[in-house]
Design a protein around this nucleic acid. Structure first.
Lengths: 188, 188
DNA sequence: CGCCGAGTTGAACTGAATCAAGAAACGTGG
DNA sequence: CCACGTTTCTTGATTCAGTTCAACTCGGCG
């Protein structure tokens, strides 16, 4: 759980009781490679912090799986739209390695947000930072070729090739598996 | 300013003093069509709520302007990455009609966030909702053809054609001006 | 009247998708 | 530890939506 506490501390000062509140509110849970952490059409009532392993989110489009993102340990994951709006999720969350997470459900989270001002502030920073990440990502990637997208991804997530297979990575980049395979074939 | 108060009230209960704090913290400012509200490379220290008019954000890519989004009245705008991280903005904010905004600077905003719990909570909801919007948008648009993107845009922002010119709209959709012009030419 | 920005139309080109086989690698049970 | 089925990855040929470049139209306005 240290990784989670450090993550929160990166954003806000955390008094001892707030740290205690976090440790009490999150539960540790384990998944096997291949397990579905959240199934499409369920309402996602949990927020997960990955302590160990790798997770992807995906949804079905024309009967085919589309990977939306791949998350290594040290990141928060959930089906955001489902979690925030309490509606059925269009995406699934899938452990692609043996994975350990810290889980908190929405009710508990809201409770902690309201009771611990520092954690409430952290919640805002987390949302702001996620929003900003998505914003910069979508703007930055718009004009990149398939090759540039891939090199870019490798630069900030180099071991993704060990953690996720070709098809997932290609899908996450919005390119076909064949194209990505050809890119790998070329040198540099 | 009523529109702004209503916007906040949509997300949170707003005690009278909190409402007063908002009215005191935001200043009204006017821009002429064509004015730059924020210039690229400046640090954006303000958050704007559009009371009247239309605004777009854009950045330069290979010497050409790329419109990232077009906002009508009733929305918050800023150069998010610059505002949140207090770094130089890569994008500019541009009034494309005569526009009236309510402005708040970051210091004042943080102050209000900390002093008024309801407004702090609103800040988190705002960030969460923006994040979610970007998320669903980017996922939803990935597999749409140029035509579907345009029809989709028209369905939730029908008067955009009156408010923004062809080039801005095409750029915002990530398609060329020529392609959008051809789409308009087709019937239906 | 002639210029200018905005929009339209035409023709040629291209990056990446798709379709279609194969080749490797992987793991499970005998 | 090997055989066999399954999944993952590679390679080739073809196709297409949308880009690019270039020229042209239209309406407004000094």
């Amino acid at each position: 759980m240290k990784e989670l506490i450090d993550y929160v501390k990166y954003y806000v000062k955390l008094p001892a009781e707030a740290e205690k509140a976090i440790l009490e509110s999150f539960k540790v849970r384990e998944y096997q490679k291949g397990d579905l952490i959240l199934r499409e059409r369920d309402v996602c009532r949990n927020l997960f912090f990955i302590l160990k392993g790798t997770v992807r989110t995906f949804y079905l489009h024309d009967g085919k799986e589309v990977t939306t993102w791949i998350y290594p340990n040290g990141y928060f994951v959930t089906a955001w739209s489902s979690f925030l709006l309490e509606k059925e999720s269009f995406e699934s969350v899938h452990a692609i390695e043996n994975t350990t997470v810290a889980v908190i459900n929405k009710l508990t989270l809201n409770d902690v947000y309201d009771k611990r001002i520092s954690i409430g502030r952290f919640g805002r920073f987390l949302a702001e930072e996620k929003m900003n990440g998505k914003d910069e990502y979508s703007k930055g990637y718009m004009f990149l070729s398939a090759k540039e997208k891939y090199n870019n991804l490798l630069s900030f997530f180099p071991d993704i090739v060990q953690r996720a297979n070709l098809g997932y990575i290609a899908s996450m980049l919005g390119i076909s598996q064949e194209t990505l395979s050809r890119l790998r074939g070329e040198k540099s």
